[in-house]
Each structure stands twice: as C-alpha cells, then as structure tokens.
Design a protein around this nucleic acid. Sequence first.
DNA 1: TCAATCCGTATC
DNA 2: ATACGGATTGAC
Length: 714
Amino acid sequence: MLPVARVAVDIPLAHLDRPFDYLVPERLADQAVPGCRVRVRFAGQLTDGYLLERAAASQHPGQLARLERVVSPEPVLSPELAALAREVADRYAGTMADVLRLAIPPRHARTESALASPEPGLAPGESGLDPGQPGLDPGESALPPPGPAPDPAAGGDPGAPGGVGAAGPCVTATHTGVHAAIPAAPAVPTGPVHPVPRPEPGSWSQYRAGPAFLDALASGRAPRAVWSALPGPHWPDEIARAAGTAAAAGRGALIVVPDARDLSLLDAGLTRVLGPGQHITLAAGLGPAERYRRWLVVRRGTVRIVAGTRAAMFAPVADLGLVVLWDDGDDLHAEPRAPYPHARDVLALRAHRAGAAALIGGFARTAEATSLVASGWARPLSADRAVVRDRIPQIQAAGADSELARDAAAQTARLPSLALRTARAGLASGPVLVQVPRRGYLAALGCARCRARARCATCGGPLSLAHAGAVPGCCWCGAHDPQWRCPRCAHGGLRAMVTGAGRTAEELGHAFPGTPLIASGGAEEPVPAVPGSPALVIATPGAEPRAAGGYAAALLLDGWALLGRPSLRAAEEALRRWLNAAALVRGAAAGGRVVVVADAGIPAVQALIRWDPATHAERELAERVQLRFPPAVRMASLTGPPDAVDSLLAAAQLPDTAELLGPVEAPEGARMLLRVPRSAGQALAAALRDAQAVRSARKDPGPVRVQLDPAELS
DNA sequence: TCAATCCGTATC
DNA sequence: ATACGGATTGAC
C-alpha cells in the first residue's frame, strides 16, 4: 500500500532541492506517515529528511533505496508547511532545507514522548505541570478539555537565541517588577480546544473600520488591514480582541511581535482579555525542550492563539484565520539566516494561502505596508483625525537652526532650551523619557549648507567617504563623484550627517540634580517598566520602558543620528522610533509633551508633530517609486568573494529588465545589486536560484549570499 | 598492462 | 557534500 515515500532531504545544496523517492520497508509502513522525520541513505551517507508524501509509484527510472529509519512518527511537516516552505524558498532564491531549518525546531525526544501520551499521564520532569512554580505562568496556560480539534496547518521555529540587533536581548528578570519577558514552566494543554467566547470590541470602536473588521473576522471572512494604532498602551488588548474574535469563530490566530518585551506585553494583554489558557507564546531563548514542547502543543491544535517573536512566523497554527504583525518596520522582523525571509512577507503569504485575515501595523507605517494598501491587498485601518488628536501628546520640534545654534553649550549637550524647559515641567508630574541614539551609526554625507542627503548621480544610492578627505563614493554602484554638487542648493561642500553620540546620561544628571536617573538599553540592561513617579528615563530606541500612567514628557534627542544614517529607510526609521517613544507619553489633555530635537522642516518631523505616519509613508512610497527602490521594485544583493559573485552572475539567466549596480567593496568581498520591476521579481529569484544550483553542482568555490529585498540597502 | 589519480556527474 | 565511474597519466 503506497510503497513509495517522497522525501525532502536535509542537504543545503541548491541543486538537490527537490524530493527524492524511497521504498518504504514493510516494518516502517505504519510509522512512515507524511510529515514525519526520516533517516535515509543519500549519496552513500545517512542523512535526515522529511517524508513529504506516500505514493503508489515512482517516476524515478533507477532502483529506489529504502528508508533507513523513521526518526519519529510525529508529523512535523504538514502539507501546508511543506508548501509554505517551498514558496518561501522560491521567493527568496533559497532552498527548502534552509527554510525548514527555520520553521521546524530541533526534535527533543524526551519532550516528544512525554507529550505523546494523549491522556494527561504527564511524565515527571520538565514538561508536565510543574508544581514547583505555581502561578508563574504568563506564557501559556493549562487548558481544560472538550470540543473538537481541527487539523494542524503549518510549522514554526523558535530560533535565534538572544536579541539580535536593535532591541535588547531577552530579559529573564524584571527590574521594576512588571513582566518577565520569558514565561516560565507552564502547564501542558493536552485536551482538545475549548470554545472561546467572542470578546467585546473594546477600544476597536475608536477606529473607523474597527468594528467592521471584527465583524468580518467573526463571520469567518478574511479582512486584511494595515493598521495605524492609536498611541497609548492599548495595542496588546486590541490585538488580543482581534485574536479572540478569530478564535471564537473557530479559527487560529498567529501574532508576531519584534522582541521579548513586546511579547510579554502582548502575553499580558491576551491573558487580560481572553483569560488564562487561551494562548501560548513561542519565544527565542526558551531552551530546546520547552521550545519543542510548545511547538508541538501548537501543532496539535490544542491552543488556537499563538504569539511569538520572528521565529514564530512559521508556527503550525491550526486552521489559521488571522495573522497579526506588530510594528512591521522593526528590523528584528527580518530573519538574519538564509534565505533571509521577512515576517511581513511570510505572514502575508500565509494569510493568502490560508484565506486568513491579516492585521499589519503599529504606531508607524512602513512603505511596504503602504504598498500592500496601494495594491489593494489590504485596507487602511485607522482612527479619525479627531480621535488621534485627542490621544496624542503635544509635540514640538526644537530645530537645529534657532535655539541650538545660539547656545554652544546646549549644542554640545544636544539639549535645546525648549527641551530643557519641557523636561523640567514634566518632572513636576511624572517620569520623563529621554530617547538617545545608540552608538555606531555610520556617517552618511549630506550637503554642508542645506543638509540634503548626498546621493549618487548615477544610481541614486547614498554617498559615503571611505576615509577623511577621500573622494565621495556610492555605497551601491561604487561610482566616484569628485564634482558632487547639491541638487537642491548647488552648494559643493559635503559634511558628515552624524555627530558622535556620546553618553547623555551624565550630562542630564548634571542638568537635573536630585532627580532619579534610570537607564535602559545601550550599555544598560533594558528596563521593561518604570513607576509613575518623577524620574529621568534615558533609553535607546526600542528599549524605552513603559511608564505607569504614561510619561509626562519625552525628549527625542537622536534626530540627527537617526536621520543621518546612510540607509534608504533612515527617515521612516527615525519616525518609527519617535512614534514608538511618543506613544508612551500621556495625551496633551493630561499634560503630555514631546520635544524632538530636529529641524521642523524635515518631513519625518512634520509627520511626527501631526501624528500622520500614513501620509509620510505614502510620500515615502511615492519617492521610492520615482527612485526605483524597494518596495516599488525588487532588488537582490549578491555578496561574497569577487570571483564567486562573478561566477554566479555569469551563470544567471537574468530577466532582461534586470539592472546591475556595482560591484562595490563589502566586508565579505564584493557586492552587486540587481534591480528589476516588481513584475519580474519571481523571475529574478528563480534565475538566482538556478544559478546557485549550477554553482553548487559545479562545486564552484566561495559562498555567495543572495538576499532579496534586503532590509538595509547599505 | 596495471594502478593511482583526476574530473565530472549523480545523489532516490 | 560524497561516492562512483570513466578517462588520464605514469611506471613497470
């Protein structure tokens, strides 16, 4: 009976990225179920693989080898997950094996067998109800039985340990005592899902299309929205209500947030709104046993609502009805391992495949999300201007020109007098947040007179200096331009856009003697929350603690550093970080004030003052259409030793619309950028994948990293 | 004439 | 990758 097993072998080579057929020996016939892990002899070696399907016959002309062993009958690779992994691999010019490594956590045999017993015959030890830690249960909770369990869908991986990049590392202990970021030793939900009552709309009624979105969810439809969240602490509750609505309609929900801090806020929100036991969290840094255990719980469909960080984007949520991505501009949503998928893309793909609803948003708005609106894939979900105005703090810019220029001392401390006054007034009624830039931004170049960003005349890439006094060169195509003149004011002088970001804490301490000083992020451990009493809270972007009752004021001191970054997304990213900080401040009616130290003429600053990220993102998108940058086009970056990059390019049959930029020097050797219209995106990915296959079949030396629409274009 | 080695190709 | 086969080279 179906004697052939189609197997995806875990080999990283591009030209072997296809199924291979094996015979199922009689003794394994029962265990060799679709989706299970197997061992097979491949090219003489024993390797791991996944059984994709059983078949009656093989197309393979030669002899078939036999399955060596079924590692476990647990069907970890469902057809849905297999199809998703294939699609993600194709989209990113990578291999399915690479995607599966991101999507399926390593097996933990003890955990698997402990969880296998369908009755709560809980094995003692790590995975059962842990009587030693009662009440420590923010991550997941016990589930009472009844009700039928739907089929599992796709797969997921709690990967990447530690905080990658911007936001701080995983927090295991609380400082000021609000949330532990990593939930500890929860109970095991073993029985089938039990019914979830539909939550009230709550603060969704403040959004114009909010109730309609929830109604559509409740009736099992698949609304897709780009969400502009109102400032304040309500977003976790709002996500919880959306997820609860999907669950009440009998479908699963998957929520991805950037980091452990946001996950713990969301976790609390889910528990608050839906009660304990309705959801489970998947976070990096849980440890192999716990990670696998929770993943299995999700796969078995005993919990409908799954929340996690990036790695959870592949989580095998049963009968997916809603995907949610919070703060989609955070670069933590970009997976740093091959094939470098972005959570936004993967969740959008999944929503599409599963006919699920999608909710993508945050306080800020990315050009990518705006592009989803522009293409008609999603609709905007936002509040009326009057509601927004009612909620936001009073926001002012302290420009460099006026106040900073007059006061040399203030300029050194980067504290204009408006900022100083605002902080002083705020400290009378509560904590004041000071957002400072983190170290290590590269210096980009701008016009010395009008401060417009300096761009390459050939391809529009950012210019930079290799060293002081060098001829400015393009970061993308390598063109040098000794004759550069500012296109805006025709001035010929260049200046670095970033001044060193020294430690601001001590300076501020001197300015406010006697005020408690709390530092979060940068060299200091991130602090999740602070009390509502007066204190100066110095934080780097992404590490801002929540304040009980909201901050009285915030000073955003990192304007130049953020705006001056030599990144395509500098303005968008600056605005995102400002909005995220300003969203923690009380509304203007309650005295909340924000001062951003940047020129009020800059569009991103205007967008902050008016709290209008959508318009800014639309403008950003229009600009990228004009300049032909992602997401208006599709780009691929090839990095590696120069010869290897050349050989890949030589092997690639690129679409004839492809435009080559570079090569430029990169830390890995050389980098080429390829640019095609969006319509040729699939063709570009396919061409690069085939070229990789040719290279790996030929055993060409030197690795080449192929990255589609990389998050940071220099 | 045989064996050690190189290259190319397939891997169920 | 690794393993195999067929061609190639070098020494008896």
